[in-house]
Design a binder for these strands. Sequence first.
DNA 1: CTTGAATAGTGAGCATGCTTATTATATCTC
DNA 2: GAGATATAATAAGCATGCTCACTATTCAAG
Lengths: 164, 164
Amino acid sequence: MTSNTEHTLGFLVHTVGRLLRKRLEQMAIDTHLSAAQWRLLFWVAKEEGTTQARIAEFLEIEPISVSRMLDRMEQGGWVERRTDVNDRRVRAIFLTDLGREAFVYVKSFVGEVTEEAFAGISKADQKIIMQGLERVIENLNSNITSSQDVEDGTEAKTLESAPQ
Amino acid sequence: MTSNTEHTLGFLVHTVGRLLRKRLEQMAIDTHLSAAQWRLLFWVAKEEGTTQARIAEFLEIEPISVSRMLDRMEQGGWVERRTDVNDRRVRAIFLTDLGREAFVYVKSFVGEVTEEAFAGISKADQKIIMQGLERVIENLNSNITSSQDVEDGTEAKTLESAPQ
DNA sequence: CTTGAATAGTGAGCATGCTTATTATATCTC
DNA sequence: GAGATATAATAAGCATGCTCACTATTCAAG
């Protein structure tokens, strides 16, 4: 169980993410919102009337994923798409009353889950962890996105490629 | 961008996980392995001849998910399913030569990505972060799994449930 | 004004997670 | 040994991410 090798940053973060998601969904089960939907709702609440493209940018997922999540969320009655009079390509996204209610409700659990997660960890260490994660994001962001490097095809190492 | 509210543990961990996955996939692109497949490969390498059920337990995903990932990975030539003579329900999973090669190759990047992620963070803080995340996992694990509590239907708060 | 490029959104189809249900095989109890 | 129960794997179908391709609309250059 504690064989050391799997305790890499990647494994740990993956696991923490899964557990946090699971716990939040468990707490807010009667909203019928998934963690992904809640994240989306969060941005809409923050910037009502925002566009799908902007939501995709915030969430760092593809516009098509937003599109189909909104299909379901509109169906479920949490959000509303309105056509923009100035730009007819755009769908402006608004919360419904139900959406707003659900948002406030789920939001009330976030602090609770965080407290649970951080139990037994000193405030000072909590701060180091949070700031550390922010730094990690900065570090990785600066090295990703350079998709030109990939196109250039100058990989240092190579390997016979597998089928599929 | 830095409006504070989104800098919760959940958002940060979610983002770090996504970026790490992306970076690793970017580095090891010529293996044609996804991060999920690499995680699976990791456990098979660690315990060759293991069963699908055991892999599912390790990865904390459902057996059916393992089943279908293995369909693709067997197809791709990374792993091999062998029938167990002692228990004919069981499929014992082994790495192929290609799988072993790919595993060693990807493994060589993990340290690299971690270093990149932790750039500018002191060793002491890195330790606090890693141990902190392990503690978070323990904390959340002890409060999850109690699915009986959910069945009992004694929720503290309620909300009109939405359709869908 | 017209043409061409950029932008907003969606369709099709895939991977990886899920839940629920089914099949085959082992094991446990009597 | 027979019948109930448990376990290993898979099937069907959904959600959420992806890529690639497409339409509709706007903006920019001439």
